[in-house]
Write a protein that binds this DNA or RNA. Structure first.
Length: 870
RNA sequence: GGGAGCUUAGCUCAGCUGGUUAGAGCAUCUGCCUUACAAGCAGGGGGUCACAGGUUCGAGUCCUGUAGUUCCCACCA
């Protein structure tokens, strides 16, 4: 029969096929709706490699929201795409080139190398798409974007030129964070500070006029680039020295002693060496005092020609050599251990070298102000709220943003330098001649920071700067879903860019999720090898199980630990739903009515219908408030505990009465609730719900494009629901008694019930017979003879002990058990009295014996009590 | 040096605006192949909700402090 589900739940049987069907039916593109739009742009994964489990969390979260809104009838767009990820991708391709062909990018040359990266992008971009599909993501692939697409590149250029004309982009010679391995400048956000064990060295500098001055430094090798020594103007100790000249050791240079407020008198010796080219503060001091700038490192942080005999040494070799030489000269007078924060490149981990160089910057103050305002006034809201502090803290302490990178992969800076007149022209279109003098021009060699283009993502992907239909319809987007680790990198940049360029916030809500960690709680990383490939999980357990796992067990903004145990539990849930549906389908057929409301509705039907209405209301509210985990746990409980464990069991007797009104009522309620519950679950587990939905009687179309369930007041049977709950309570109580007495299910016994609310139990005899092992139900007003009682809020249930257990046999069994236990206890006691055993055996073994003894004694007490009760 | 989060059952985590006996999954124990499901069913054990104060009729939930832990930000040589 076409309506049957396969006997075993195997997601491989249908997940892929269903996804194809959705694609073929064009289910993912927005359908115009009077209800309004709901749009989301994907945080574009880097084309560096494949997706990891963190992406799976991000995508799942978005897909849940998107599918929910789509079913609610909004014109829903989820726009997919990828990021060129400048440094990260370039490093990966260079590594690949080195490992496979033993070549550097310079061997290929810029053009060939960039082509090579495009090939890489083609490969990994496609892989990422494949993975996205396997997860069930319902993005509109007809609108797929890449940050280096023609249109998006135009947006980048337009922005750069705009900012330039407004004076927001400027070129400056400044200290920047320089990565000697990647050979490029980095933005402050791209530097990770880690505490390193280092040392403080005290070094004596000879003063020309006589005597010495002692400075303290953590970086003695930069001494080679010193152009002054500074003290605080108010420092009495050194007042006389200001204006004198110092003979810089290891070089033949003479440098002045200057006075500057920057120096902290309390710190170290109160004297600071000034190296303008290799320290941001010293650079500023240098400017104030018009000091020479002597750069002693090349792009790879090796000592250059300014370093005299140290030329060619790596910076750390140079440190050793300088220290050794100073020691030799007797100028090294102290060394103390000292830990301090050292900047590392966020991509390759190399220690950052502050280096003075000419770079492009974005002036941040004017851009940050409205962006701060937008969050403070609630135009942009963070969920959970406390993440706005991270954002504000960063925005309020903003520094200018270094946007030029000495890389080949990225958007080339649209600045053109005239070889003749020397003027700089910034232009949206490529120039060949200078607009000022007509001379030949050459374009800036550098590319823009990758975040410069991602900053525009919410609108550049929709066609901006053109006022396209998509842009007008879907911008601003509805919500941004991302992890907290890129709030400063990305979220902040989109907000100020959106405000500056489109005059609007790019999204009213930022929904923050946590990071996925491994079972031990460690961050997943390549070097640890603890990363989980989402596709392997999908392969083994199905996309629905993976999605379920990611959607549950964590709250917004909190990290979640990923373990296969949890995926397995999720799969078990899917299996449960599968089997319950299979059972319903085995009994149902097309003749069952779609609306369950009828005369024959039983108490249990009213109960489940009422519970179901409550579920609709709660799940809907939870999803609207981004409480995905809460919504899901309610669905889980409803499906497993309420629908499967109780409702289906309660229905079973009526399922054999084919053709009766009671039978039809049961079936239509089973189907009605199942259909609606599948819909509620669909955003989270799209595949299994679609597969089952398609098999249901009266099914037409897709569940994914069906309407979201609405609570139906006709089914608010509150009173009946409470009555049923009381029945369930009593059944539980009776089961407890039977379990405690070890009564086999086959043994049936009369059940006596004492209650003040007989109405609630008037129709309940069949339930007790089926689910509580009762042979009949009798109401009593006082406790019958020889009975055990179990009380609930509404009633007291009585069972006659002699009905439940064969007294003689039980007596015999219990006496045997007591005897056996006594024997065991004697043996164990003897063992523990044996001094040899206690002293020689490992403590754990002895303890185990002691525990055993305790257990035996407890068991014996129990058995004796039971015996006495008979 | 600032700031934020976390600390609840053996393990991993839920507990919304304070309200009846603090929940789930996994693990564990007991009994069940009760024909939708052993990837299951029924029942049980296990928590002084990190600690110390405070507000309140009432606190896991709010306030203050302490400890441990994770993370973010930060140009003190």
């Amino acid at each position: 029969m076409a309506r049957e589900l396969q006997k075993t739940y195997d997601p491989k049987d249908f997940e892929e096929a269903l996804y194809q069907k959705w694609l073929e039916a064009d289910c993912f593109s927005p359908k115009s709706s009077a209800k309004g739009t709901f749009s989301v742009v994907i945080p574009p994964p880097n084309v560096t490699g494949q997706l990891h489990i963190g992406h799976a969390l991000n995508h799942t979260t978005q897909d849940i929201l998107v599918r929910f809104k789509r079913m609610q009838g909004y014109e829903t767009l989820w726009l997919p795409g990828t990021d060129h990820a400048g440094i990260a991708t370039q490093i990966r391709v260079e590594q690949d080139l080195r490992e496979n062909e033993h070549k550097s990018r310079h061997d290929l040359g810029r053009e060939k190398f960039v082509k090579r990266v495009w090939d890489w992008k083609a490969t990994y971009g496609a892989k990422i798409l494949e993975q996205t599909k396997k997860l069930g993501s319902s993005c509109d692939f007809s609108r797929l974007r890449f940050t280096m697409d023609e249109g998006l590149s135009r947006a980048v250029r337009k922005t750069f030129v705009d900012y330039y004309q407004k004076g927001l982009v400027y070129q400056g010679y400044r200290i920047t964070n320089w990565c000697p391995h990647c050979v490029t400048a980095l933005a402050d956000t791209e530097v990770e500070h880690k505490d390193l064990e280092g040392a403080f060295w005290d070094i004596k500098y000879p003063v020309k006029e006589g005597g010495f001055i002692t400075i303290a430094t953590t970086r003695p090798e930069t001494l080679l680039g010193d152009t002054a020594v500074a003290v605080h103007p108010d420092d009495e100790r050194y007042k006389d020295l200001v204006g004198k000249t110092v003979l810089l050791p290891l070089t033949d240079r003479e440098i002045p002693v200057i006075a500057d407020e920057y120096v902290d008198m309390e710190f170290g010796t109160g004297v600071v060496k000034i190296t303008p080219c290799h320290d941001p503060n010293d650079f500023e001091v240098g400017l104030r005092h018009d000091l020479a700038q002597i750069c002693i490192f090349d792009d790879h942080a090796r000592v250059n020609e300014n370093g005299g005999r140290y030329q060619g040494m790596d910076r750390f070799e140079a440190r050793k050599a300088v220290l050794a030489d100073l020691k030799e000269l007797g100028l090294l007078v102290g060394e103390r251990k000292h830990t301090h924060a050292v900047g590392h490149c966020y991509r390759c981990g190399t220690i950052i070298e502050p280096l003075a160089s000419k770079q492009w910057f974005v002036k941040m103050k004017p851009l940050a102000e409205p962006a701060i305002e937008a969050v403070k006034t609630g135009k942009v809201r963070f969920v959970p709220e406390h993440f706005e502090k991270i954002y504000l803290n960063w925005m309020e302490n903003i520094h200018d943003w270094c946007i030029s990178r000495q890389l080949w992969w990225g958007h080339r800076i649209p600045a053109f330098y005239c070889d003749a007149c020397g003027k700089t022209t910034v232009s949206e279109t490529d120039l060949t001649v200078c607009p000022h003098c007509g001379g030949a021009v050459h374009q800036d060699e550098d590319v823009l920071d990758t975040w410069f283009s991602s900053a525009l993502w919410p609108f550049s992907t929709l066609g901006w700067p053109d006022q396209t239909a998509d842009y007008q319809k879907y911008y601003p987007t509805s919500v941004l879903v991302t992890a907290y680790d890129i709030i400063t990198f990305w979220v902040s940049k989109m907000i100020f860019s959106g405000l500056a360029l489109t005059g609007q916030v790019p999204f009213p809500t930022v929904f923050i999720h946590g990071l996925v960690r491994d079972a031990q709680g460690r961050k997943m990383s390549k070097s640890l090898g603890n990363g989980v490939d989402p596709l392997e999980v999908v392969e083994a357990y199905g996309a629905d199980a993976l999605r379920f796992t990611l959607a549950t067990g964590s709250t917004p903004g909190n990290d979640l630990r990923f373990s296969m145990d949890r995926v397995e539990a999720s799969r078990n849930f899917a299996n449960k739903l599968w089997n319950a549906s299979r059972f319903v389908l085995m009994n149902a057929n097309e003749s069952v009515g779609e609306d369950p409301l009828c005369e024959a509705l039983g108490a249990e039907d009213k109960w489940i219908l009422c519970e179901y209405q409550r579920l609709i209301r709660e799940v809907t509210t939870n999803l609207e408030h981004y409480e995905i985990g809460v919504a899901l746990s309610k669905l889980y409980d409803f499906i497993w505990d309420v629908y499967c464990d109780w409702y289906i069991e309660l229905c079973k007797p009526r399922l054999n009465e084919k053709g009766t009104p009671q039978n039809r009522a049961a079936l239509s309620t089973l189907l009605y609730v199942l259909r609606g519950t599948l819909k509620l679950l669909h955003p989270i587990m799209p595949f299994i719900t679609e597969e089952i939905y398609q098999k249901l009687p009266h099914a037409s179309g897709f569940i994914m494009t069906s309407d979201w369930p609405q609570a139906d007041e006709r089914f608010d049977f509150e009173r009946e629901m409470r009555a049923m709950e009381e029945v369930i309570d009593v059944i539980r109580a009776v089961r407890r008694i039977r379990a405690e007495k070890n009564v086999p299910p086959k043994v049936k016994a009369p059940l006596y019930l004492k209650t003040d609310d007989p109405d609630a139990f008037s129709q309940s005899e069949p339930y007790f017979i089926r689910l509580a092992g009762a042979s009949e139900l009798a109401f009593v007003t006082k406790a019958p003879e020889g009975c055990i009682a179990a009380a609930t809020n509404a009633a007291t249930a009585f069972l006659r002990l002699s009905d439940l257990v064969d007294t003689e046999a039980e007596k015999a069994r219990l006496s045997a058990e007591c005897e056996n236990l006594e024997k065991q206890i004697a043996i164990t006691e003897k063992k523990l009295e044996n001094r040899d055993f206690v002293s020689r055996a490992p403590e754990a073994v002895v303890n185990k014996e002691r525990e055993k003894l305790e257990r035996y004694r407890a068991a014996l007490a129990n058995s004796r009590a039971a015996l006495a009760a008979l």
